[in-house]
């Protein structure tokens, strides 16, 4: 039984829609490619990264990244710059920290602070009530 359950998990590993296989001359390049196709967004499908999407545009962009990584020995920065110059910051799943994204980056912290303030106030209030 245990083996059966284990088998189930083995076969339910996340599968990717992507079929093309690219050959890299070294492992660093493969790792860089893998990192980039996960970090860049497919602009047409919007809530998928490049590796998860089979849209023609995502295929083109993967091909482009492969080309740059394998044949032009481009580093991560170069590829990201190439993509943002054409498609804007929107292609990045990790938006850069800049004036118009400050709220995006720090909103969670702001929410946390707000929560802490509310909890503290609530606790104090209930303490006061129980003391009275």
């Amino acid at each position: 039984m245990r083996a059966l359950i284990l088998m189930f998990f083995l076969f339910s590993l996340p599968s990717h829609a992507v079929i093309e296989t690219y050959h890299f001359s070294n492992e660093q390049q493969r790792a860089l490619y893998d990192e980039l196709v996960r970090e860049l967004r497919c602009v047409v499908c919007q809530n998928q990264n490049l590796i998860d999407s089979n849209a023609p545009l995502a295929q083109d962009l993967r091909q482009q990244i492969y080309q740059m990584v394998q044949h032009e020995q481009a580093d991560k920065e170069t590829v990201i710059k190439f993509m943002t110059q054409r498609y804007g910051d929107f292609v990045l799943y990790k938006p850069p920290l800049q004036p118009n994204t400050v709220l995006l980056w720090f909103a969670p912290l702001l929410m946390l602070l707000l929560g802490v303030v509310m909890v503290v106030r609530f606790v104090r209030q209930t303490q006061k009530v129980s003391h009275d």
Binding site: Q46, Q85, R86, Y87, G88, D89, F90
Partner: peptide, 9 residues
């Protein structure tokens, strides 16, 4: 409109 991606161009 979420389809409209602002162009950096």
């Amino acid at each position: 409109n979420p389809r409209e991606v602002p162009s950096p161009l």
